[in-house]
Design a binder for these strands. Structure first.
Length: 261
DNA sequence: ATGGCAATGTTTCATTGA
């Protein structure tokens, strides 16, 4: 199974790029963030023609998440939001695909240390980690994929001194990320030897992408049962190139078929 | 010290993102 997460920064704008990428990469499951579309405007038919079924939870302008599954895969138990956490923002959708629980998450950005949005981010992460513990207990084969808006450690930052203590890199955010791992998950990217300076997001400004001034903030976390059967984890930097890219690149894992069902 | 860029709707600017 090939599982992907991609913050598309507006599905309306990025649909042609997404459809082209699906055709070239043939993933089985795709977690999307920042669709920025109300459910009534979700491009169900266009994606169906591209060979994918859609489950989604969206809103106008901000946020919005979706899980796409290759036609023919069995999808059950679609759930939206975090149990016990009342949140108007559409940031979580989960579904069971071929026996694997897939949680698609768009963690709040946090804006600035000490801001209301930063407090919301930390509260959101606490609630999500709590919920995750139950979810992993119920679903031994679980993948949490999304835009975590946290660079877990300095290897994930192009200039750690510049970013030290800043939002996306602050210690409370990194501790929140470790709480996700403590729920019983592994950062799939670090299951493998990786080259240095691999990132998933680059600012649109200041030629950040050509200079590779990026952060690795998009992650696929795997429960033990899936981590042990994961054969690769990488980021498709090429998807950040060309006209009208998202500022994020997709992260991709492959899981051996014997982990399914 | 600050803005740089992109997307959206409140649209010819303000807000948000990261």
């Amino acid at each position: 199974m090939k599982l992907v997460t991609w913050n598309v920064n507006s599905l309306n704008v990025r649909l042609p790029r997404l459809v082209a990428w699906l055709g070239a990469n043939a993933p089985d499951v795709v977690c999307l963030q920042e669709t920025k579309l109300e459910d009534a405007r979700f491009p169900v038919e266009e994606l169906r023609q591209a060979g994918y079924a859609s489950a989604f939870a969206g809103q106008k302008t901000y946020n919005g998440v979706a899980i796409l599954t290759r036609a023919g895969l069995t999808v059950t138990d679609v759930a939206r939001g975090i149990d016990g956490f009342d949140d108007a923002q559409k940031r979580v959708i989960a579904a069971t695909v071929e026996g694997i629980r897939v949680v698609c998450a768009y963690v709040p950005n946090g804006q600035a240390i000490g801001s209301d949005k930063y407090a919301y981010k930390l509260a959101w992460c606490r609630a999500a980690a709590l919920h995750l513990r139950d979810a992993v207990a119920r679903h031994p084969r679980l993948a949490m994929a999304g835009d975590f808006n946290v660079a877990p450690d300095d290897r994930d930052v192009h200039d750690p001194a510049l970013w030290e203590g800043q939002v996306l890199c602050s210690e409370p955010e990194r501790a929140a990320f470790r709480e996700f791992l403590a729920a019983g998950l592994k950062d799939s990217f670090r299951l493998f030897d990786q080259p240095p300076n691999v990132f998933s997001w680059w600012d649109y400004r200041q030629l950040a992408f050509p200079k590779n001034h990026g952060l690795r903030i998009d992650h696929i976390l795997l429960s033990e049962a899936l981590a042990s059967r994961c054969t690769s984890s990488r980021i498709d930097r090429n998807a950040r190139k060309g006209e009208k890219p998202s500022d994020h690149a997709p992260a991709i894992v492959e899981i051996a078929d014997d982990a399914l069902r």
